Simulated scan of single mutants.
Amino acid sequence: MGPRSRVRAAKCQMLVTSFFVLLLGLSLATMAVIMYFGAHSTVISRTSLESNPYKATHCWAFYTGMSLAGLLTLGATLSAAATVREAQGLMAGGFLSFALGFCILAQVTFWRSRNPTQVEDAALDTYDLVYEQAVKTASFVWQQELAAIQDTFLCCGKRSPFGRLGGMEASLCQGEEAAREDCLQGIQSLLRPHQHVLSTLSGIGLALTVYATFLSAFLCFAFRSGHSLDRRGKYAPATQARNRQPQEPSLFRCSQGEPTPRPPSGADAVGDHWGLRGHSEGPRWLQDN
């Protein structure tokens, strides 16, 4: 396979990879918006706690997801445009976007491997704090916030490790609410699928960004060396090849456009020596005399 065939194959692969990277960026943005503005996440993050453990993790996950989605979308758009137009500058921008996206994905993957249940633990800690405030203070505000969380997750209270609940704890779950599942298990069962989807998207994103980075680097160097390779006949962009016109040798151009200079004769040399060159009557007058 020659250089031209390799470049064509790389361009086709770059277009396909950019399409999948664009889909990945849109998926990450959609998931970040759902997790940030969804009812389950909003009801926990907007509690009246002074130090909400879930709110900081919630905001960090949203901004990280949106930044990553923006980088991947930008890289896919720049790489596709650069592949079609054979533009080195656009391809360099796509390479930089893919490299930054890979760094963020690697950091997210490392964080997930070290703290796989950090988001779940933050949500459970927030619920425990609201539950304790509602039980201890018997405040109507805390009971409303606790009821909002339980209605959103379709759960009620939490099971006591001793098997018996106090009077206030038992009064929180009455009637149909008493048949609901434990809120600790309900929150975990609703948040774990989101975490699994996030892990899957992170793995796919790592593979796509690595492949797209190598492709963009190869095409960037190919577009850069296209002018120098053209003289040796290996590779040249099609647009430049059509616009380039063959140039004639300089000797041939002189023979067509300008008279060919003749070597000076003996008489011209003598006339040039006495300052008479250019006067046609000078040498003839000397010969007559």
Rank of each mutant, 00 (worst) to 15 (best):
G2R: 01
P3I: 14
R6T: 13
V7M: 15
Q13F: 13
M14P: 01
T17P: 01
F19I: 08
F20R: 00
L28F: 03
L28T: 00
A32V: 02
A32N: 01
I34W: 07
I34C: 02
F37P: 00
A39M: 04
T42E: 02
R46A: 08
A56Y: 07
W60Q: 10
S67E: 07
T73G: 10
A81I: 12
A81F: 14
T83E: 05
R85L: 15
A87R: 07
L96Q: 01
F98D: 13
F98I: 13
A106H: 02
R112Y: 06
R114E: 11
N115C: 01
A123K: 02
D128A: 11
V130F: 06
A138I: 11
S139W: 07
W142D: 10
Q144A: 11
A147C: 07
D151K: 01
L154N: 03
F162H: 12
F162T: 15
L165I: 04
S171W: 10
D182R: 02
Q185D: 15
Q188H: 12
S189I: 05
L190G: 00
Q195T: 05
G205E: 01
L206C: 01
L215E: 00
F223S: 04
F223Q: 02
S225H: 08
S228T: 11
S228Q: 12
R232G: 04
G233K: 01
Q240M: 14
R244G: 09
P249N: 09
C254W: 10
S255D: 09
Q256E: 08
Q256C: 10
G257P: 00
P261R: 04
S265V: 02
G266W: 10
G275I: 03
R277P: 00
H279A: 02
N289V: 14
N289S: 13
